[in-house]
């Protein structure tokens, strides 16, 4: 294992120390329990938005803390959900009296830890709403599993809900908006290589040199099926078809297309993917009205990408365009 780390067990703490030094003007990094808050929190009268999850997906979630997006993020250990005391402390730190929205990715651990935190916060009189994101179409049957995973739609929900909260929309509306984004978004990913968890020291997924994993999760967990490596054209066709057919997206739909790198894939290849996606969607009469291309929700050093499509209306498009000032996303300000 070659990584730019010191002791594997210190990776998250060492990185948080770096974040504090690099962005101390805009972010406050609290340790024990660990959470990142925007420096001007709490904002009186503004709904606060808190998210979090295992580390290893950067810039998600800490890189999305700031004006127009998250008020706080709770980083867990690598690929391990944060604990309830982290989420509770972050919730207290950002509550400006208008309530707190917890945006939770649908993984067993995340859901349970955020549920426990929400119960504790409510006991303290903080008004909390919780929305679980589950946009991954790789899992076809949600009834006999832990349900679909929360992937790319999380980034879009955090941006759109952050903009609505900045406009002083009330908690119930911001939470409803979050559910609307989740309902209108679908994603799927592909891994070309495994990631390596520092504490484990070897690849999580055994992928042969000519194999790719379709429907991979963002923790290196195996996906829907293993296939032989293929061209970008064929890979995008398979991913996009699964996504489009699932919602389904149809002729005349305006969408936000999000091509996300999983950490080990160059931007050059992500634009190759975007080109293929644009052509395929155009042939089906689906219009890309907004796009995001880059590595925003990663799986450590995994090579590969995910595609997320979100059906847009004027409200969602306007909130997407609204100013955002975070280390991971920044425009309009």
């Amino acid at each position: 294992m070659k990584k730019l780390i010191n002791r594997p067990q210190d990776v998250v703490q060492d990185a948080l120390a770096g974040v504090a030094l690099a962005h101390g003007d805009r972010l406050k990094v609290h340790t024990a329990p660990d959470y990142i808050v925007r420096a001007d929190a709490p904002l009186r009268g503004k709904v606060a938005i808190v998210s979090g999850g295992g580390s290893g997906h950067e810039p998600l979630h800490g890189g999305f803390v700031g004006r127009g997006m998250l008020d706080a993020a709770c980083p867990g250990q690598i690929f391990t959900s944060p604990t309830p005391d982290q989420v509770l402390a972050a919730t207290r730190a950002v509550d400006g009296g208008a309530g707190v929205l917890l945006i939770v990715k649908n993984y067993t651990g995340d859901v349970m830890n955020f549920e426990m935190a929400a119960d504790l916060a409510r006991d303290e009189g903080i008004v909390v709403e919780s929305v679980v994101i589950d946009d991954d179409v790789a899992l076809q049957d949600g009834r006999h599993t832990a349900g679909r995973r929360g992937v790319g739609a999380t980034v879009l929900a955090e941006k759109i809900c952050g903009a609505a909260a900045e406009r002083r929309r009330p908690l119930a509306e911001v939470a409803e908006l979050c559910r609307k984004v989740n309902a209108g978004a679908r994603s799927m990913g592909v891994a070309l290589t495994s990631c390596t968890v520092p504490m484990v020291g070897k690849p999580t997924l055994e992928l042969g040199p000519d194999e790719i994993e379709f429907g991979v999760g963002i923790h290196g967990e195996p996906g829907r099926e293993r296939r032989p490596a293929a061209s970008a054209h064929d890979i995008v066709a398979a991913l996009a078809t699964a996504i489009v057919d699932d919602l389904p997206f149809g002729r005349g739909d305006r969408v936000l297309a999000f091509v996300n790198g999983l950490g080990g894939t160059p931007l050059l290849e992500l634009y190759v993917v975007y080109n293929e996606l644009h052509t395929l969607l155009a042939s089906r009469g689906i219009v890309i009205a907004r796009n995001l291309v880059g590595s925003y929700m990663t799986a450590l050093d995994m090579a590969g990408c995910s595609i997320t499509l979100l059906r847009l209306d004027d409200e969602l498009a306007a909130l997407w365009d609204a100013p955002v000032v975070t280390t991971g996303l920044r425009w309009g300000a």
Binding site: G76, Q77, S81, P82, T108, G109, M112, E115
Partner: peptide, 12 residues
Amino acid sequence: LVSSVGGAAGPL
């Protein structure tokens, strides 16, 4: 355990 394990095992 709840405040140190994380994941699903912590709450469980």
